[in-house]
């Protein structure tokens, strides 16, 4: 099998949501000396792009986008031992959690998986996360973005407490803050001083990616 065929086969296994085939072809491609970087930039990136388009056109469900993301993640974990340190690059780093008093984490989990699939390093603090834990994580992990979720009107007010705690700790200017969840609105996001609001996971990830692109432009 030629190098191109391996790259195509891995890409197609992502598009077809086939875990077994993706693993099989990745291992075979490595044996055939296909460069891991090429698998990342061609097979995974192209595969995810196709799946993303299929989702946008209504041909795939979001859950299928998640599965594709997990396949991409698994392929990357097979490749990582073969990559040099400098070759492992991340789009950015996100600290994410569902705020204090709220145990609903399914939406947050979807966003976390999709951020990882988009190339972000994600530090997931879980559910029922108090402001001080967000602050601690920002100090320790030095993320680019803090993402918060809430499902209840009574807990969404905690998002402001997190932002206030970040301000108090002198960390607010170091991170972008994005919020989401059923009762949350753009207006609410503005009122508590968040930088962004994701109406759904896809939009949330899009905003985070745009922020990182902007950041990289500022750096250069």
């Amino acid at each position: 099998m030629s190098k191109e065929k391996y790259l195509e086969a891995i890409r197609d296994s992502i598009v077809n949501l086939d875990f077994d085939k993706s693993r099989e072809y990745t291992l075979k491609a490595l044996e055939a000396n296909v460069k891991p970087q090429e698998i990342i930039s061609k097979s995974i990136a192209e595969g995810m792009d196709i799946v993303g388009k299929k989702f946008e056109s209504g041909e795939y469900f979001l859950s299928e986008l998640i599965v594709a993301g997990e396949i991409g993640k698994e392929i990357t974990s097979i490749l990582e031992p073969h990559l040099k340190g400098s070759e492992i690059s991340r789009v950015g780093k996100v600290v994410i959690g569902t705020v204090r008093g709220d145990l609903h984490d399914i939406g947050k989990n979807i966003v976390a998986i999709m951020l990882e699939a988009a190339g972000f390093e994600v530090i997931d603090l879980g559910a029922d996360v108090p402001p001080e834990k967000f602050v601690e994580a920002v100090k320790k992990e030095n993320p680019d973005i803090v993402a918060m979720s809430a499902l209840l009107t009574v807990t969404m007010v905690e998002m402001k407490n997190v932002i206030d705690a970040l301000k108090e700790a002198g960390l607010r200017e170091k991170v972008k803050v994005i919020i989401g969840g059923a009762p949350v609105t753009e207006e609410f996001a503005r009122s508590i001083g968040a930088d962004g609001y994701g109406a759904d996971a896809v939009q949330g990830v899009r905003i985070c990616k745009a922020w990182m692109e902007e950041k990289s432009k500022t750096k250069t």
Binding site: E70, N109, I110
Partner: peptide, 8 residues
């Protein structure tokens, strides 16, 4: 269930 449903 939470793990499984979002992955169908």
């Amino acid at each position: 269930f939470n793990y499984s449903i979002i992955r169908q």
